Computed example of a mutant assay.
Amino acid sequence: MAVISTDKNPEALTLTLIAEFDAGVERVWQLFEDPRQLERWWGPPTWPATFYKHDFVPGGRAGYYMTGPDGEKAHGWWQFTSLEPPRELQFNDGFADSDGNPTGELGVSHATVTLEPVGGRTRMTILSTFESEEQLEQMMQMGMEEGLKEAVGQIDRILAEHANA
């Protein structure tokens, strides 16, 4: 399992996930840069993602939906606020309606993804920051922490496929 740890900090209004992968930073960056690779792991295995928009530039937007086991669709959006290839990306994240418009439901969170080389491997840190303790708790109750661990846990398989190609 690639995930090393998760830490929920209600005082700081954050959830931090740390994972390590047997691949270089540039290769791991591609998992965010390429929407076809991103949708193979963003979302837990039972709620796979489909990215129908992915404007991977500062100020650009991504639109996606995750499809549950019963066919239910949960729509979301990202707005990229900062990209520093291949080391860091930041984006605002929220729920959307079926047309991709932000709903404001449960507010907006902010993610900072940092990639750093560690002894021939890459350490990925995902820091999610919330607007309030209530929002953080609502997201935890929805299964965000476990879902993120399951999602990131799918990355090793994708990296192994490309390493053997």
Rank of each mutant, 00 (worst) to 15 (best):
E146L: 13
R87Y: 10
I158M: 02
D7A: 03
V28S: 03
T81I: 07
T67A: 10
H75R: 05
M140W: 15
G59C: 08
E20C: 05
L148P: 03
L106G: 09
L136M: 15
A163M: 11
G104N: 06
G68E: 11
M1C: 01
Q37N: 13
T67N: 09
P48V: 04
Q30L: 13
P35K: 09
I158G: 01
W77L: 06
G24A: 10
E88H: 14
L31C: 02
T81F: 11
P102N: 13
R61A: 04
V108Y: 05
A111E: 14
W41C: 00
E131F: 09
P44L: 05
G68Q: 09
D7N: 07
Q30I: 02
L159H: 07
W42P: 05
L83T: 00
E20A: 10
S5R: 15
T16A: 02
G153P: 10
L159Q: 13
A49K: 02
D22Q: 13
G153L: 06
L17W: 10
P45F: 02
A19W: 04
R36C: 08
D70V: 10
H54I: 04
L31Y: 02
T129C: 09
G119T: 05
P117S: 00
K8F: 11
V25T: 14
G104K: 07
V108L: 04
A165S: 09
L38F: 12
W41M: 01
S5W: 14
Q138L: 13
E39R: 06
Y52P: 07
D7Q: 03
E134A: 13
T6V: 01
E146Q: 15
V3H: 06
N164L: 14
L15P: 10
E88G: 00
G100D: 14
G104S: 03
A12Q: 14
L17Q: 05
F130Q: 06
A96I: 13
A62N: 10
Q79S: 00
T103P: 14
D99P: 01
I126M: 15
T114G: 01
Q141C: 07
A165G: 14
F21W: 12
M144L: 15
R123H: 07
V57A: 12
S82L: 08
F56S: 04
M1V: 03
Y65C: 02
V3D: 03
E39F: 04
Q154C: 04
T46W: 07
D93T: 03
S109E: 07
W47Q: 01
S5H: 13
K8S: 15
E84M: 05
G94F: 08
Q138T: 11
L89S: 04
M124P: 06
Y52G: 06
A163Y: 11
I158W: 03
E84T: 09
S82I: 01
N92T: 14
M124D: 08
I158H: 01
P86N: 03
N164G: 10
K53C: 11
D7H: 06
P69S: 15
H54V: 02
F51H: 10
L136I: 09
P48W: 02
T125S: 12
E116F: 00
T6A: 00
S109T: 15
V152G: 00
Q90G: 14
E134G: 03
F32K: 00
D7W: 00
G147R: 06
N164Q: 15
E26T: 12
S128D: 15
G107K: 14
T14C: 13
L17D: 03
T112E: 14
L127G: 04
D97Q: 10
I126F: 07
